Amino acid sequence: MKITRTFVLSGVALLALSGCSSAAPEAEPSPSSSKISYTDGLHAKVLSVETANTISVDIDGQTKEVRLLNVVAPTEHNNEFSGSCLIPESTDFLRQKLPEGTEVTLDFDNSRVGSSGYLEAAVYVGDDFINADVVREGFATTTFLSQRDEHYAPVSEAQQEAAREGRGIYSKDVECALPHAIQLHIDRVHQANESDDEDARISSYKAASRFYNTLMSTAKSPNTWIGSIVTLDAVKDQLKELKNALGKNYYDLQGKTEQEKQSEANEPVRPGS
């Protein structure tokens, strides 16, 4: 029995030794799997442009999708007013700015991955701040996690400039743009003021008032697509023009004009009511 047990134990030991000697040495990590240090000044090479705020880049042999920080591009899935405006034009603009092979530098905010799940970065070509360039030409809006975002201010200033100059999605001449829609309501109210058709006049006043009220409510959410546009000085001025055009024919959120509310306030209170 002792001989048998010794034989079996010896066999197990030989198998263990054999297994150790035949095991392949642990592979060295390849360059493509090395960890990237996401610090300001990170160099990358543009592989492609997907949308007006999303690019594919090569970083140390790894392909990464980068979203332009504080920039929201129009997309076909954006249901907000003018959110799907000038999609091809905005993408083409960024492709011209960042052709394949362009060397870029990436800077980051406090959190390098945004709520979208993308790597978010401020993209530079030399001293040229690409995020602001796209917005300045009226091909995107700006957004923020907080107004203390490190790169938000220059992008926001670029958006104000685009609105003042009436570029891209801030143009009254672009049919899908919000300023164009505001101007249409202003023109319709002026036409209604000169119309003899009372029903048509009231219909125009109510439509313009609903439109105005909807837009004003979005100003409470300036980090959204439509809210970002409504809070621009040039657009706020245009909305004031619409409200002034309506004058006493403006219908509030309860669907009443100032004159109607005044009449109700002056109605005598019935006994027992």
Rank of each mutant, 00 (worst) to 15 (best):
M216C: 08
T75F: 05
R201L: 08
E120T: 14
A52Y: 04
S90G: 13
N213K: 05
C85E: 07
Q159N: 02
Q147P: 01
P25S: 10
D127G: 00
A200P: 02
L17N: 06
V134Q: 08
T143G: 03
F81R: 11
Q254S: 12
H185V: 03
V49S: 02
R270T: 07
D92K: 12
P179A: 09
L232A: 12
I169H: 00
F93K: 03
T39H: 13
L246V: 04
L246K: 01
I202Y: 07
R188P: 00
V123S: 04
D133W: 00
F93Q: 03
D233A: 14
K220W: 01
F144P: 01
D149N: 15
Q62E: 11
F211T: 08
S84M: 00
L106I: 09
D107N: 15
L232D: 12
D109V: 14
K236H: 04
A132W: 04
A13L: 15
V57A: 10
G11D: 01
A177E: 02
L178K: 04
D92W: 03
L14Y: 09
Q183H: 14
T6R: 15
V72N: 11
S18Y: 13
D199S: 11
D128L: 09
D197Y: 05
E175F: 02
C176P: 10
S111Y: 14
N223E: 15
D187F: 06
A219E: 15
P99C: 05
F211Q: 04
V104H: 11
V8K: 11
D187P: 00
N244Q: 12
I186C: 03
E137A: 12
S48W: 05
D196R: 12
K240L: 12
V71R: 07
K220D: 14
A245G: 06
Q238E: 13
V46H: 08
K97W: 02
L86H: 01
N110I: 01
D199Q: 12
N78Y: 08
F93A: 05
I202N: 11
P222V: 01
A140R: 03
F211W: 01
D40G: 11
P268E: 07
E80I: 04
T54P: 00
E175Y: 06
S195I: 12
V46S: 05
D237W: 04
T224S: 15
Y124H: 13
V135S: 03
N223V: 01
I87E: 04
R136K: 14
T143N: 12
G166N: 08
Q159M: 14
N131G: 03
V66E: 07
P271L: 11
E150F: 09
F7T: 11
T214Q: 13
V135L: 05
C20H: 09
K64V: 15
T4G: 13
T6A: 13
E89A: 11
E137L: 00
D199V: 07
S209G: 06
D109I: 14
S273K: 03
